[in-house]
Amino acid sequence: MFQFKYPENFLRALGKPLVVFISRVGELSEFIARALYSCVTPPFYPRLLLKQIINIGFYSLPVVALTTLFAGMVIALQTHAGFSSYGAESAIATVVLISVTRELAPAFAGLMVAGRIGAAMAAEIGTMRVTEQIDALSTLSTDPYKYLVAPRLLAGVIVLPLLVVIGDIIGIFGGYLVAVYQLDFNPANYINATVNELQLIDITTGVIKAAVFGFVIALMGCYNGYKSKGGAQGVGEATTNAVVTSSILILILNYVITGLIFTE
């Protein structure tokens, strides 16, 4: 028996999931506002920021390097397969350059770091939540947002662009390897084509994306960890949620940012 006379009845018909969804959105918004506020107000913890930068940046280098290397290589191979019938083999350098710098390096670096770091952040902060370590921080007059969340967010935004610039270089190098050693291109011509085609917007697009992804990864890791409850199972859920939501958001935002920059 449904009656839509009053808004209350309408909402009731939509049920609990809607209420949960709306309260989640509110909770996340409040978390983002507090987190951003703590990033710009003292006290700052430079030592913790440095630790996070090393953790996120330095130790992610191998996975980012490997994924972008093979991404560049496979793009070179596919472009050759697709374009050789049109006699446009010279396009390989351009295609590798654009796809690696604008799309592949930021997306792969983002996804790799989301799996590596987003999960670790959610697990660490979630464990601190369920073992009352976060409450203990508060009782020692230390704001957990400033001590735990702010250094991670800042590190994410600072480090991911750097990782992506390195990924750009390695990805393009991967394309070069395939073009020169497998497809027998002239090395000098390939490098020339790459340098001539290189535009600033290719790099900036990737860097902007990386900064956004870094923010999203750290945010989802911290948020899910911070709000986790219910012991080991809760921490496990938080970890899963952090990785899944940040991976999905990375792919969606990747499209949105490309759309914003490249469509007039």
């Binding site: 601190m128 073992t131 370590q133 409450d135 203990a136 921080l137 009782t139």
Partner: peptide
């Protein structure tokens, strides 16, 4: 104010 938590809540 200071507090001793049930599980200790030491920063690991």
């Amino acid at each position: 104010m200071g507090m001793l938590f049930q599980g200790g809540a030491l920063f690991d």
